[in-house]
């Protein structure tokens, strides 16, 4: 099928989709007048039941924690897939002279930025039950801090920080803790992922029981997963071209 016919077939399909989609949304509640009882119910009882002031994270890590478990394993499997696909390729060791990195001024400011980003990421992860944030966002922030190391220093230093075995272990631990936290209630004859930890005082960092714990384990998993992704891709790029092009 050449591209002209492909475009024609696309537009026929798009016309059909548009009709069905229009019929589908035509009778939705008007925009801005959400009716569903489920979200309102959680808004009303979430703070009392779970001592978590952020309803979004209460849903993510508690009420619908089982779904998030699935999401987390999609993430885990994707990272695994990237590493499997880009693994092998026995590359010749780099022969280019060692890269000294950028100037001291850049290194110093990158170091300060690195510390600030890591602390901010940890803050986001641990305060997810109180304000917008949580493990997914905090983990990404922590992982992005490592990019500053790569920019200011050279690749070997970056490689040391994202050293493979430890990050891989951390990633598996992050995924494992989630399941373990969920399995413990089974011993206590409660359903899977019951909030079994002490709920604490609403508004404290150590409140909301398993929500905070699961958020932390997700943060660990996401941070380690993104570190692995960054490392795998950078290694692929750098060894393919023989040396880094940093200009």
């Amino acid at each position: 099928m050449n591209s002209k016919w492909r475009t024609i077939v696309f537009f026929i399909a798009a016309a059909g989709f548009s009709c069905l989609y229009f019929l589908g949304v035509k009778n939705l509640p008007p925009w801005g007048h959400y009716r569903g009882p489920y979200g309102d119910l959680i808004s009303a009882v979430g703070v009392y039941e779970r001592h978590a002031t952020d309803a979004v994270n209460a849903i993510d890590y508690d009420y619908r924690g089982f779904d998030t478990l699935g999401e987390e394993f999609i993430l885990f499997t994707s990272v695994l897939g990237v590493m499997l696909l880009l693994r092998e390729m026995k590359r010749p060791p780099k022969t280019s002279p060692p890269d000294k990195g950028l100037s001291d001024a850049v290194k110093a400011s990158a170091g300060a930025g690195f510390a600030a980003l890591v602390i901010f990421g940890i803050y986001m992860t641990t305060h997810g039950q109180l304000t917008p944030g949580g493990g997914f966002q905090g983990g990404v922030i922590v992982a992005s801090a490592s990019m500053l190391v790569y920019i200011a220093e050279n690749f070997p230093v970056y490689k040391q920080i994202t050293s493979h075995p430890l990050v891989e272990i951390l990633e598996s631990l992050g995924a494992g803790f989630y399941v373990i936290i969920g399995l413990i209630p089974l011993v206590l004859a409660e359903p899977f992922l019951t909030n079994w930890m002490p709920l604490g005082k609403t508004g404290n960092v150590f409140s909301s029981g398993t929500i905070a714990a699961i958020s932390a384990s997700v943060g660990l998993e996401v941070a380690a997963g993104f570190l692995l992704l960054g490392y795998t891709y950078l290694e692929e790029i750098i060894s393919d071209t023989g040396e880094e092009s940093r200009e």
């Binding site: 979200g39 808004s43 703070v47 002031t53 952020d54 309803a55 619908r64 999401e71 996401v222």
Partner: peptide, 26 residues
């Protein structure tokens, strides 16, 4: 839907769809 400074049960946007979206982005 963050109950800091507003009463539980106040009129908020739906937290369920936001939770769905949040995991999806990462």
């Amino acid at each position: 839907p963050v109950f800091v400074g507003i009463k539980p049960g106040a009129v908020t946007v739906d937290p369920v769809v936001q939770a769905l979206m949040l995991t999806d982005v990462v």
